[in-house]
Amino acid sequence: MASIATVSDLRQGYGRRDVIRGLDLAVDAGVLGLLGPNGAGKTTLLRTLATVAPPREGLLKICGAPVRSERDARKVRRQIGYLPQDFGYFPAFTVEDFVHYCAWLRGVPKASADVAVNEAIECVNLADRRTAKLRSLSGGMLRRCGIAAAIVGFPRLILLDEPTAGLDPAQRLEFRALLRMLKRRGLAVVISTHLVEDVAAVCDTVAVMSGGRLVFHGLPDELVRAAVADAVGDTHIERGYMSVLARGGRPA
């Protein structure tokens, strides 16, 4: 089956600085966990996949279509749901209004928008706060609202940058259940996170970035097996992650 998103030989950055160099990645249906230290290029990669910033070099394909221009980008944006790391919101909007607004921005058809919005709000357990103003929500609730805005209409590619930041343990468990539901729908979900245990619990594949390069891409079990004996970490997967980072992509 063709990948839902691919980047080939990607170079990307800000200003004069290249953050990502020569990166190849294919995103298939299922959940891909994107791990890496701060500054590794995770957010830059997600912004590129979200077509926010054009690649400096290399090729981006979404749903098989190459994205080389703004026109190309607009064609595929209906298929992309994106929760940015710095999730901005309009404080005076209600939860329902904001998710509706995001559905409208994404071009969710008017006929199905109401159903899609309700479904997205229920998925993140905010149904009882649908009429609450965003300014009145806690950090965790805001994050859940952002997730609802990203998944509304269930686009084929969902990009979630630090979706579990601010969520309490119970909400994180609910979020994992949501990811499993999205996976069952055959969607491709990319989550960028620092929480390695989330990756172990729910991701089908894991990608580890370091210094703008992909240093690991495989199954969670493979990441566990990559652990070296003296690696630091509380869990197997954490030790695998630390080992991969320490090697910087060199084989064990």
Partner: peptide, 22 residues
């Protein structure tokens, strides 16, 4: 100016709709 204050820039930039509509 709410876009600058609230930081919804990326959400708008990844929008399928033309920015002019918003």
């Amino acid at each position: 100016g709410r876009e600058h204050r609230t930081g919804v820039t990326d959400s708008l930039a990844s929008s399928w709709r033309g920015r002019w509509q918003a």
